[in-house]
Design a protein around this nucleic acid. Structure first.
Lengths: 174, 174
DNA sequence: CGACTACCTTCCACTGTGGACTGAGGGGAG
DNA sequence: CTCCCCTCAGTCCACAGTGGAAGGTAGTCG
């Protein structure tokens, strides 16, 4: 009964507080709710579920159609989740390949960088639009916690766009 | 001679354009120059160096004191670096444990979250100060590329701090 | 019924992280 | 000068995380 959960496993426990879910459901739920600031993959979710089941933190119910295996929380699982949540969260990690390319930009012919930059700017523009739309239509139904994480996304994307728009011409123009 | 480098390996090749360096030097250099947006660890650097040596992208010179082994670029290495740099950089990844904790904040007693938040705010405040100091003292010597990545850091930290300051009281106040 | 699509899980190779461990050089205290 | 300790330099390991391939099954639509 390992109580030193990693954040991904703990999040799964968090979602299982709502209702029993299969691995598939958990992936979908997690990607929708925390995917923007906590990446996770199918592979790892299933791996953590298997580990947590054998650690007694969750229990698989009777298999449904298509090998669907719903998991539900055990008391140990609830306790482990609480214990994890009480811990001081660690620092954030950012890995931004575009910044790498820019950092080595002097090895690149002029204009090439600008094309990459323009691509990325488009992606961020679109993401900001999505966030804003989400807040506009669902904003009132969101609780303070969901609202706070969404607000982070909006401020982040806004800042990134401003950064794009202030890049010097040798990086920005084709 | 694998030409599908990963970004970490490619960065090492990038730094070896300056001068031959040992694994230790490369870790220090990389952490100083790209560490803020591309995390890397000693373990992986040495692993990549070994792989790249056996792939013929770099060559080890005569060992110095304390098993220090300087690597230098080969022509194949230079070519592989160029090939990597030409590739469209992928999307950024953010993993922010604090946002996870906030997302599950309703399971936490009031005030607890605020303590975490205050901690993190301090870290970001300090980082912003560092960046600003760096720009103030070295700003003129930096080329456009280094300046652009530094500017990203400043805008990011600024946005995060603003986000902190706009959190609702049930999250922010102890 | 038969093809097809969406669902659900598994497996694998590789990349990335953090800590423990070894061992050698160099510099300061005595 | 010698000894000790600190830093330098590299190695190893377990675990976390990523992405894609593969495979089987259930419902659905012609």
């Amino acid at each position: 009964m390992d109580c030193q959960l990693n954040a991904t496993a703990a999040s799964l426990l968090g979602f299982l507080h709502e209702r029993p879910m299969s691995g598939w459901d958990l992936v979908a739920t997690a990607q929708a709710l925390i995917g923007d600031f906590w990446s996770l993959t199918r592979s790892q979710v299933y791996r953590e579920l298997a580990a947590m089941e054998s650690a007694g933190l969750i229990a698989a119910g009777p298999a449904g159609p298509r090998d669907r295996r719903p998991y539900e929380l055990t008391d140990a699982g609830r306790a482990a989740f609480r214990a994890w949540l009480e811990q001081r969260p660690g620092p954030e990690q950012i890995r931004y390949p575009l910044l790498l390319t820019i950092a080595f930009g002097r090895h690149l012919p002029p204009g090439r960088l600008a094309s990459f930059v323009a691509d990325h700017r488009g992606v961020h523009e679109q993401r900001l639009e999505q966030y804003r739309a989400l807040r506009a239509e669902a904003g009132d139904h969101l609780d303070a916690y969901a609202s706070a994480t969404l607000d982070f996304g909006i401020r982040y994307e806004t800042a990134v766009l401003e950064w794009f728009d202030h890049l010097p011409p040798e990086i920005r123009s084709r």
